[in-house]
Design a protein around this nucleic acid. Structure first.
Length: 538
RNA sequence: GGGCCGUUAGCUCAGCGGUUAGAGCAGUCGCCUUUUAAGCGAUUGGUCCUGGGUUCGAAUCCCAGACGGCUCACCA
C-alpha cells in the first residue's frame, strides 16, 4: 500500500478529502474505484493521526441528460430539468429522481465500508446562498473565465457567453439555458430550443437575479467553488477528468485565477477494464455494480480496487475465467502473510496495509481477522456441487476446531458468493454436472479394460446381498475391491467413472457421487459404458 | 492531435536500483485401500518490447522509438 501511505505521509495539517457525483442513473462496477480510493486515502490519513474529514457531494442540480431511465412520456417533459426537480420514476417514496439514484449509490458505498462524514446536496448548497459570492465572482470576471477556457482547453466560447446556467422560469429546464449579459445584480438568459441535442428549451428569455438556487455555475466553476466552500485539500478524479486540458485542468485554473485559491491535491486514477475495454453496460460489456456485489463480497471488491496503484488500469475479466477465485486467493494470501504465516510468491510492499484497508470495518482487530480460518473459494465452489455435503461440518473438520462466529459468517458469505459465481461467471471447467440424458461423448475414450471393469462393478453392485450400495462409503469400497480384482489401478478406475458420468477425466469423490444418484440410473449407465446391450431409457 | 497507462514464463500478474528474475494457473513426470487425484511432491519454461544513456551494478532510473489499450478534444 505504498501509494496511500505515501500520500498520507506527504501532506501536513488537517485534511478535507472530497469527491462528488451526478446522480444520473445506475452505477457500474468500475465507478466504485473512485469511492474506494477516496476511503482508503481517508483511512491512511487517519492511521497517521491526521485530522481528516471525508465529504461526498451529490450534484443534483445538474440537468437530466440520460433518457434511458425515464418513462417514454416523461422524456420530453423532464429532459434538461435539474435532477433534483425530476420526479422519481421508481415511485418508491423518494422525493425526486436525484434522491432515488443517490440513495442507491449511498447504500452501495455503505455496503463497501465507505462512510463519508457528510453527504452534501448541491441543490441545498445553492439554496443556502453560500455559492452566491462565487457566482458573482464568475460573472464579474466572465472574460477571464473565457480566457481560461481558450488557454487551457482550447475552447472558444462566444464573446457574450457567461459561465452560468439559469433554471428557466417558464419551463424549469436548466440544461437548455444560456446567459448572455450580467448587470451586476441580474443576468439575461435565453432558453434555447437547440442549445443541446438531448433537450429542447422553450424559447423563453428574461432578466433574473441568479442567486439562491435560481442558477448554477458551469461544471468546472462549480467544482472549483466546492473546493473553496468546503476547504477541500485532496480530491481524486478519474482519468476522463484528469486528462490534459480536461475538466480538472480547467477547474484548477479557475480556482487559482478566479477564486484565488490553490486547488486540492489530485489523485488521478485509471478505470476498470473488462477484457481490455472500458465497462459499459449499454455495450453489453461488463457488469452492473449490484450484479458483481452478489459474487464478489465487499472486502474482496475493495482489494480489487485498492491493490493496484491508482494510475494503473485494472484488467478484470470475471466472465468464464478464474479471476474471481484468484481474487479470493490473493485476499487469503495477504491475510496469511499479515498473520505471520509463510506464503508463496512475492508480497507487495506494505501488504499488511493492503489487507487492513481491504477490511470493511476500519476499526477491526486486524490480527484476529487475519488469523481466522477461511476456506478457499474454489474449494467451496466444488463442495457446493456435491450432493449431501454439510458445508459447516466439512469446513470445521478441515480446520480441526470449532468455527468462530467470524469464521462461520465468512463461510456463509463465501458459500453464497460461490453459488452466485457458479450460476453466472464460472467457466464450464469449474462446473460438475452429471450428464443424465445420454452417455457423454468423452466416454468414447474409455479403454477395453476400463469398460470391462465398469460392467463388473455393475454386476457386483447388483449381486450384493443387501442390494446396490446406498452409501458413499459402500460404493467407494466396492469400487476399490472390484478394481483390485480386475487388476485395474484405482486411478484408471476412477477416471472411467468420471468419463462415464461427467464426461471429464476427474471429479468429486466418486463413491459419494454415485450414492447421490438413483441406483437404477447408475447401474444402467455402467452397463452402457461397458458396452453391454441394454436399452437406455430417458 | 493532446494526455495517461501497459508491454516480465503458454495465460494472469508480482517484483520498481542490489545475489542466480518469482507466484498462481496451464504443461510434463511421479505418488492411490480412501484427509475429494479439483490432492500431494517434483519439474520444464523468460533477449524482463526495441535502441541508446546514467551507474560498480538496470526488469527497475533517464531519453528516443514500436506495439496494445483507455481517455479528452460539445456538455456535465
Amino acid at each position: 500500500m505504498d501509494w496511500a501511505d505515501e500520500l498520507a505521509a506527504s501532506v501536513e495539517g488537517p485534511q478535507v478529502v472530497n469527491d462528488s457525483k451526478t446522480p444520473s442513473g445506475t452505477v457500474h462496477v468500475g465507478s466504485l474505484r473512485g469511492p474506494v480510493i477516496l476511503d482508503v486515502i481517508a483511512r491512511a490519513l487517519r492511521a497517521r493521526g491526521t485530522a481528516t474529514s471525508l465529504l461526498y457531494g451529490i450534484d443534483d442540480l445538474d440537468p437530466m441528460d440520460a433518457q434511458a431511465l425515464l418513462t417514454p412520456d416523461a422524456i420530453e417533459h423532464e429532459m434538461g430539468r435539474p435532477l433534483a426537480h425530476v420526479p422519481d420514476q421508481a415511485g418508491d417514496c423518494h422525493p425526486s429522481y436525484a434522491r432515488h439514484h443517490a440513495q442507491a449509490f449511498i447504500d452501495t458505498f455503505a455496503g463497501l465500508g465507505i462512510h463519508p462524514d457528510r453527504y452534501y446536496w448541491m441543490s441545498d448548497v445553492y439554496a443556502s446562498g453560500v455559492v452566491d459570492p462565487f457566482i458573482r465572482a464568475a460573472l464579474d470576471r466572465a472574460e477571464a473565465v473565457r480566457a481560461i477556457y481558450r488557454r487551457v482547453a482550447n475552447v472558444q466560447h462566444p464573446a457574450d457567453w457567461h459561465p452560468l446556467q439559469v433554471v428557466c422560469e417558464s419551463c424549469a429546464r436548466i440544461g437548455t439555458t444560456i446567459v448572455t449579459r450580467w448587470d451586476g445584480e441580474r443576468v439575461f438568459y435565453e432558453c434555447r430550443p437547440n442549445l443541446v441535442s438531448w433537450a429542447h428549451g422553450c424559447g423563453h428569455s428574461g432578466w433574473i437575479p441568479p442567486f439562491g438556487g435560481r442558477a448554477k455555475l458551469g461544471w468546472n466553476l462549480e467544482w472549483a467553488a466546492q473546493w473553496s466552500i468546503f476547504g477541500v485539500t485532496i480530491e481524486p478524479s478519474g482519468k476522463d477528468l484528469s486528462t490534459a486540458g480536461g475538466s480538472r485542468d480547467r477547474a484548477d485554473a479557475i480556482a487559482r485565477e478566479i477564486f484565488e485559491r490553490e486547488p486540492p491535491l489530485n489523485v488521478a486514477y485509471e478505470f476498470l477494464n473488462i477484457g481490455g475495454r472500458k465497462m459499459s453496460t449499454s455495450r453489453g460489456l461488463g457488469v452492473a455494480a449490484h450484479e458483481i456485489v452478489r459474487v464478489v463480497p465487499p472486502e474482496q471488491l475493495r482489494l480489487l480496487f485498492l491493490r493496484p496503484r491508482p494510475q494503473t488500469a485494472i484488467e478484470f475479466d470475471p466472465i468464464g475465467s478464474d479471476a474471481i477465485p484468484r481474487l479470493f486467493d490473493e485476499f487469503d494470501r495477504l491475510a496469511d502473510a499479515t498473520a505471520g504465516h509463510p506464503v508463496r510468491g512475492e508480497l507487495p510492499a506494505g501488504y499488511a496495509s493492503v489487507f487492513r484497508y481491504s477490511l470493511l470495518d476500519p476499526g477491526a482487530d486486524v490480527a484476529v481477522i487475519a488469523a481466522a480460518f477461511r476456506p478457499a473459494f474454489g474449494h467451496l465452489a466444488l463442495l457446493r456441487q456435491i450432493p449431501g455435503v454439510d458445508i459447516d461440518a466439512r469446513i470445521e473438520t478441515e480446520k480441526g476446531a470449532p468455527l468462530t462466529r467470524l469464521e462461520t459468517a465468512t463461510v456463509r458469505e463465501r458459500t453464497a458468493a460461490a453459488d452466485a459465481w457458479l450460476a453466472t461467471f464460472a467457466p464450464d471447467k469449474a462446473r460438475i454436472a452429471v450428464q443424465r440424458d445420454r452417455i457423454p461423448d468423452e466416454a468414447g475414450a474409455l479403454e477395453p479394460d476400463q469398460c470391462t471393469w465398469l460392467g463388473q462393478l455393475a454386476a457386483a453392485a447388483l449381486a450384493a446381498v443387501s442390494g446396490p450400495p446406498a452409501s458413499g462409503d459402500a460404493w467407494q469400497a466396492l469400487i476399490f475391491s472390484t478394481a483390485a480384482a480386475a487388476g485395474l489401478v484405482p486411478g484408471r478406475a476412477f477416471g472411467a467413472l468420471y468419463l462415464a458420468f461427467l464426461g471429464r477425466p476427474n471429479g468429486p469423490r466418486a463413491g459419494w457421487l454415485l450414492a447421490s444418484l438413483e441406483s437404477a440410473f447408475v447401474l444402467e449407465r455402467l452397463r452402457v459404458a461397458a458396452g453391454e446391450p441394454v436399452q437406455e431409457s430417458a
